[in-house]
Design a binder for these strands. Structure first.
Lengths: 348, 348
DNA sequence: CGCGGGGATGTTAGCGCTAACAGGGACAGT
DNA sequence: ACTGTCCCTGTTAGCGCTAACATCCCCGCG
């Protein structure tokens, strides 16, 4: 299919010679220009196939000014969400004929962010995608001035740049609604770190859903995404429960904390979901394998990537485009169940 | 520092005009050529700074044939290891003045792999890095013929291409040794999937260390990286223990399985590390937060990335270079302790 | 004092491609 | 039959840069 011996790189005129046309006609065929006779087009296409020709991107970029490359900058890629976002973005970019150049920042300072964007500029990428879930990253992004089209991902409305994201508020409402629907009188919430827009949005959603149902809004339990903080939250909530509080349902801002909470509840002799129902957020690969399998909220990273790239393409074409946030989905597993009929005044 | 108004892209002759030299002299300064008078060099550098000039990479790539970009292809980036590898690679590439173009494959077929490498070729990257821990990916890589320098990462010797990796065998020996040193008479092993070279290497290391210590080699328990399989392994090992087998120490091929095993042992009424000591592999971010905090083996991904890029640079320069695998380290936490003094004939 | 040599700089020719313009043939309308 | 038009194809001129060659000047040496 492709010539193995890399004797000399093929160029357009090699194809032209073989097809008996000028190199410009080859260019027209390659770029899908309309005014080429079907017969000619076919011959050129055959020559391209037979030779295994590929246009040189550097030459193309030099004359068109476009590299068909998108830069992606993120601060933290260890976490499941960011890693999945990268995957979704890459896939969507590839589908649109773009490749993704990735930079992972060590720290979310304006300097580091500026450096990254600057490097992208030097690389002459066509646009920059930035993941900015944390406030410092979002702020740093604000301070970066660049002629490059910039699209932020998952910044949750913290920036006015064109942005795409998953609807965190809706996700939190979904989780909370599910628990209320199961008959729980209220839902406790273990938050993520305060400097994360996503964490704040999840609090907002949880609160909104409780308010809509007329349920009590319990004091939040602070967490920081780590299983350790989930564990602590579990101890705390168990204590509150012993003190007579109505702790039968807990919604945690991520699955890792749910993992810790599950362990703590187990140690406290509370059974999930018989005594307490638990919902997480993220749908980690291990979520179905926890004991019990975790009910959680899944974000559609493929769709997120798709919309991000769509937005980039729109900006590149000079179109204004406003995209709605991606709706998340609830995955009901075994960690949630009907509210226990404890000292509740009203039974079924 | 940098002109905000992107009126028109600056080119070399703009700098040349300002510095009162020819564009070629500017080129020489930019590329650090020796024969430029200090005085001239200084003037040119000042002009570059004042104007905020940046060489056009496309033009440069066109004439030099090098894009200073490395392609990275991986099949699975969701897992902790691969994601960290990406981060390490990017950092090292950036430090060496290269940028990383990433492709994530949906499936490890030869076709998909070929496609990815082909796209890199079209993009005229300087080299390709491939993550091939699974056999199918490694095989696919074998079938790909390309003029591009190719370096594989974490393939564990399954490919003869120049490769870098973490020493999985050594890691497994470290874990096993640690348990034996604590006085355990033997160590049980929960494996990873059979089609993973890493998983096989860990079995090899575990077996080698047991053999070196003259300890019994118990039948392995099959796992597949998932917490679920770890949970099953926990049930199985607890049963074996009840049947009189000497199950006081378990080494699992990854932390996720350890997570499942921990849950199973807890359910079985076995306490870790009093009854059973547990060691994982990977040092997941949640490892320190499990109950109990997990003793595990950490791979140095920064160093891995560094060596991978070093190898790429060597190949690019035509140098032969053989790099030793990166040694992993053992992190002792609370999940391991001295062997219980059960029905053992010899006590302390 | 003339000449050779080497360091500093300038000039020229592409790298492979696309855009803009030029040309040529076929067809329709008069 | 002639002209205008449209479609197809070819020719030419760069895109911004680096490599190779040309030039110039200054210095040291015979």
């Amino acid at each position: 299919m492709q010539p193995e011996g890399a004797s000399r790189a093929l160029v357009m005129s090699d194809v032209a010679a073989r097809a008996g046309v000028s190199h410009q006609t080859v260019s027209r065929v390659v770029n899908g220009h309309p005014n080429v006779a079907p017969h000619t087009r076919e011959r050129v296409e055959r020559a391209i196939r037979e030779l295994g020709y590929r246009p040189n991107t550097a030459a193309r970029a030099l004359v068109t000014g476009s590299t068909r490359t998108i830069g992606f900058v993120a601060v933290n890629i260890n976490q499941y969400g960011p890693a999945q976002t990268l995957v979704g973005l890459e896939r969507a970019a590839r589908a649109a004929g773009y490749s993704l150049s990735v930079t992972v920042l060590d720290e979310a300072t304006a300097d580091a962010m500026h450096d990254a964007v600057d490097r992208f500029l030097a690389q002459s990428v066509d646009a920059v995608l930035a993941l900015a879930t944390y406030d410092d990253a979002a702020e740093a992004l604000h301070l970066v001035h660049t002629p490059l089209p910039l699209v932020t991902v998952q910044s949750g409305g913290a920036v006015e740049e064109p942005a795409v994201g998953v609807d965190q508020v809706a996700g939190a409402r979904l989780a909370t609604r599910h628990l209320l629907d199961l008959g729980h009188r209220t839902v406790h919430h273990v938050t993520g770190p305060a400097d994360s827009q996503e964490a704040r949005d999840r609090i907002t959603g949880w609160r909104a859903e409780l308010a809509a149902a007329g349920a009590d809004v319990p004091v939040t339990v602070y967490g920081d995404w780590t299983p350790s903080s989930g564990y602590e939250a579990g101890r705390l909530l168990a204590a509150r429960r012993r003190a007579g509080e109505d702790v039968t349902a807990v919604f945690l801002a991520n699955d890792q904390m749910a993992l810790g909470l599950l362990a703590a509840l187990h140690e406290e002799g509370l059974e999930v979901p018989r005594d307490v129902s638990v919902v997480g957020f993220d749908d980690l690969p291990e979520a179905p394998y926890l004991t019990p399998p975790l009910t959680t909220v899944r974000q559609d990273f493929a769709e997120l990537g798709h919309r991000a790239v769509e937005l980039v393409l729109a900006r590149l074409a000079g179109r204004e485009l406003h995209l709605e946030p991606v709706p998340p989905t609830l995955l009901v597993r075994a960690s949630t169940g009907p509210a226990p009929v404890l000292a509740a005044p009203a039974g079924v």
